[in-house]
Design a protein around this nucleic acid. Structure first.
Length: 470
RNA sequence: GCUCCCUUCGUCUAGCGGUCAGGACGCCGCCCUCUCAAGGCGGAAACACGAGUUCGAUUCUCGUAGGGAGCGCCA
């Protein structure tokens, strides 16, 4: 039997990292087995579902590269199907109409809570239409009264829940619209899903769903309940933890490969290996190896992985993502060195592409001036000969390559009999405006000859001016 | 309240009865060095607790404690 999994989000917000990880697990489980991955939008709640959210989910999946073989299917377009199945259940006596008012139900719940009981529907309408009348009824599923539902969860092992804990859940509202526990079952059956992989907040729903499968005369699929993702502080992930949406990570400058790798290792592992290509994951992943414990999201480790991918992925690929950042920050990538050169130099100096773009402005835009502290410390009057010597040689340099540039700096240092630091730091401040930049040869290389000479002129002017004032 | 689930360094994890409890991120120190990084080397750091089972428990069982989830005409 070919493996078929689905990711079934409700479109009530962006695709957050927890959902993305579930989607990733589903995608891997299916594709690793040569099966199919299906996307289904659970938008039965017309009140809360929005088209923007649907788009946000699609965008997130797309950015992560989680493509689907079927779908997206929309539950909102399958109402007739659910109604037909409910009707079928009704006809077979496996479901019944319930006329209980909300007030009665509320009173019942309050009463049960007070008595220290678990709030459950009491089966008032179970054996006959008590008060079939004005109010339009809901349809309730007739849950088995006794016995125990047992299932083998792929990550938790055996889980058993007594039917006595369950009640007759509503499967259709007065207006005929279906409810969650019913639609999942109908859909997973119709879509021939073999492995239901979802958050562990659904463990408690599973027995109810299994009962519905049985009522429908079907065998339930395999279930795998994966733990949720917590914020760095161990509390449930929420907006106050900073970025929770997948696309926010793109905005912050993370590579999709890094986020994917980070997410898959959150809960899943394969020995001591930390870095996995998608191809490797497809070879090794098995949802059975997913951990049972909820995991805290660690931004530092994501940073580390992102840096790893920044320098190990083909520069052209990284440059493509970097171009997006330039765009977002309003920096003209055409006004400086090729982005692939920039990536080669900056990849192991910054954690994110956003940082990379921000710290590369000096190669694409004019300097705002020299940073005060750096200029005071490094652009001293004594530097004048050094800066002049550098300017001369750089002007005449034929081969503007990192190697030649490095030679120039060394030669100047030798000739003036000073250490590298006495040459590189003033030059650095002249070129970058600050005391921090890539190695001096790379900095020269990226700034380019024209800009470098101009900036040296500005620095000389500054140094001379400063000398005169004292 | 009831039911279900979870518990190895700060964090992510390996472990599948006998290990000096391993790796990674982060942190600390040293080295390298033209700045910042990166890199190299080294270090501190964990089996929640209590009973069993066993020659022997991190590992199996049961409790306790602490977390989490569900108990909707939300999904």
């Amino acid at each position: 039997m070919t493996v078929r999994t689905r990711f079934a989000p409700s479109p009530t917000g962006v695709l957050h990292v927890g959902g993305a990880r579930t989607a990733l697990f589903c995608w891997l489980q299916a594709r690793a087995a040569g099966g199919q991955f299906i996307l289904r939008i659970e938008d039965t709640d017309l009140e809360r579902s929005t088209a923007e959210s649907v788009q946000a989910i699609l965008d997130g999946m797309d950015w992560l590269g989680l493509d689907y073989d079927e779908g997206p299917h929309y539950q909102s377009q399958r109402f007739e199907r659910y109604a037909a199945v409910a009707e079928e259940l009704l006809a077979q006596g496996k479901a019944y109409r319930c006329y209980c008012s909300k007030q009665r139900l509320e009173a019942l719940r309050a009463q049960q809570m007070q008595a220290g009981l678990k709030p459950r529907y009491d089966g008032h309408c179970r054996d006959g239409a008590a008060g079939a009348g004005e109010t339009s009824p809901v349809v309730r599923f007739r849950n088995p009264a006794d016995g125990t539902v047992v299932f083998e969860d792929l990550v938790r092992g055996t889980i058993r829940i007594s039917n006595a804990e369950l009640d007759d859940l509503v499967i259709a509202r007065p207006d005929g619209s279906p409810t969650y526990n019913f639609t999942v079952v109908v859909d997973d059956l119709d879509m021939r899903i073999t492995h239901v992989i979802r958050g562990d907040d659904h463990i408690n729903n599973t027995p109810r769903q299994i009962n519905i499968y049985r009522a429908l005369g079907a065998e339930p699929p395999a279930f795998a309940h994966v733990p949720m993702i917590l914020g760095a502080d161990g509390a449930r992930l929420s907006k106050r933890h900073g970025a929770v949406g997948v696309m926010q990570y793109r905005d912050l400058g993370y590579l999709p490969q890094a986020l994917l790798n980070y997410l898959v290792r959150l809960g899943w592992s394969h020995g001591d290996q930390e870095v996995f290509s998608v191809a490797e994951l497809l070879e090794r992943f098995d949802v059975r190896d997913v951990n049972r414990k909820a995991a805290a999201f660690d931004p530092d480790k994501l940073d580390w992985l992102n840096q790893h991918y920044q320098r190990s992925l083909p520069a052209a690929e990284v440059a493509g993502h970097l171009a997006w950042q330039f765009e977002a920050l309003g920096i003209d990538a055409g006004a400086g060195p090729p982005l692939t050169d920039l990536v080669g130099v900056q990849a192991d100096r910054v954690k994110t592409l956003r940082e990379m773009a921000e710290q590369s402005r000096v190669f694409y835009q004019e300097l705002e001036g020299f940073e005060a502290g750096a200029a005071r410390k490094h652009l001293r009057p004594v530097c004048e000969p050094v800066l002049r010597a550098l300017r001369e040689r750089l002007r005449d340099l034929v081969d503007w390559s990192p190697e030649s540039l490095n030679n120039v700096v060394r030669i100047v240092a030798d000739e003036l009999e000073v250490g590298m630091g006495k040459v590189a730091q003033p030059l650095r401040v002249a070129l970058a405006g600050s005391a921090v930049s890539p190695s001096i040869d790379r900095t020269l290389w990226l700034v380019g000859r024209d800009r470098s000479l101009r900036r040296l002129d500005d620095a000389l002017e500054y140094v001379v001016f400063r000398a005169e004032r004292h």
